[in-house]
Nucleic acid binder design. Structure first.
Ligand code: MN
Ligand code: MN
Ligand code: ZN
Ligand code: ZN
Lengths: 142, 142
DNA sequence: AAAATATTTAAACTAATTATAAATATTAAG
DNA sequence: CTTAATATTTATAATTAGTTTAAATATTTT
C-alpha cells in the first residue's frame, strides 16, 4: 500500500478503485519521473488512463481536490495557467524552476524558513503559509 | 504626466486615450488605495469606467498585457483565481497577505534577496526572477 | 436483499482570459 | 490637406481550467 493510501486511511478518506489509481500515479510521480515532475491534471489523467482507460477527468479533478483538502498532496501554481501537484513531503521544500528547460529543482533551506518567520513577526503577523519560487538559468561551468 | 506614461514613451509604447486612462488608474492605485490594493482586471476596468464610461474590458486586458510585457507593471497571482496588478517599483518588494482581511502588506528585505541568490548559486543557477509570498494572521497585542 | 448513502461518469456550466472581425482612430504618403 | 496604410478599440465569439449537475454505479448500512 502506497504512502498516500496510508494517509487516506488515516484521514478517513474512502479508497475507491479510481482513487487508488490516482494515489498511485501521484505517489509514483516523484520516483519515476524525477525532479522535472509535479504533473498537472491532464498529465495525471493521462497516466491514470494507462491503468484504467475509462477513468474520467472529472474524477481526477474531484479526487485531487479531496486529496489537497486532506493534506495528502500539495498544489503548486507556478508561472503557468494550470496547477501542478506533488505528494505532501515530510519536510517543507521550495522550488527553483529552470526557465529554459522547465526542470524543477527542489531544495530545503532552514535559513529561509527562519527568516520568513522573523519577517512575518516583525510585521505583526503569525506566519500561516508561505511560498517561495526561484526562477533561474543554469550556469555552465567549463 | 504620470510615471507610467513616461515609461511608455521610453519603451516606445504608443499612448492612446484608453491607455492613458488605464495608466492613470494603475498609477493611482498605490497612492489612493493604500496597501490593500493591487487591483484585478475587473477593478481596473471599474475605475477606468469612472473616467471614460465606454472603455472596454477587452482593452483593459490587452493593455495590461502590453504594459506587463514592457515591464511597466507587475502581475501577481496570489492564492485566488485572478491576477492582480501594481505599477513596477524601483525596488523589488515582497508581499504578506493577511489571510483574514485580505490586506496586502509590502516589505523589502535585503537578507532574503541575498539568501535567494546564494541558494540559486549553490544549485548551479543564475537567479533570474523570484517570488516570495507570506500568508499570515495578525497578532493582537494587548 | 433492500434501502440509504457515496462516488463516478458524461455533459453542462462558469469564470478568466484570449482571439476575431468590423468599426474607429492614428500615422504616413502623395 | 486627402487618401491609403497601419494600429487600436469595441463587441462578441472562442478557449481554457476548473466546478457543478443529474443520472448511472458502486458501497455501506439496515
Ligand atoms: Mn517552509
Ligand atoms: Mn527581489
Ligand atoms: Zn516539489
Ligand atoms: Zn506590491
Amino acid at each position: 500500500m502506497s504512502k498516500i493510501e496510508e494517509k487516506c486511511k488515516e484521514k478517513g478518506v474512502r479508497l475507491t478503485d479510481q482513487r487508488k489509481i490516482i494515489a498511485k500515479v501521484i505517489s509514483d510521480s516523484k520516483q519515476t519521473f524525477g525532479s522535472k515532475d509535479h504533473p498537472d491534471v491532464d498529465e495525471l489523467h493521462k497516466r491514470a488512463t494507462l491503468i484504467d482507460k475509462k477513468i474520467s477527468i472529472a474524477t481526477v479533478y474531484r479526487t485531487i481536490k479531496l486529496f489537497e483538502e486532506s493534506g495528502i498532496l500539495i498544489r503548486h501554481d507556478f508561472k503557468e495557467g494550470k496547477s501542478r501537484y506533488e505528494p505532501t513531503t515530510e519536510e517543507h521544500h521550495n522550488h527553483l524552476i529552470d526557465i529554459n528547460s522547465g526542470e524543477i529543482v527542489e531544495f530545503v533551506d532552514k535559513e529561509v524558513e527562519e527568516l520568513q518567520n522573523k519577517i512575518a513577526q516583525k510585521l505583526g503577523y503569525k506566519l500561516v503559509d508561505h511560498k517561495l519560487e526561484l526562477y533561474g538559468s543554469k550556469i555552465k561551468k567549463n
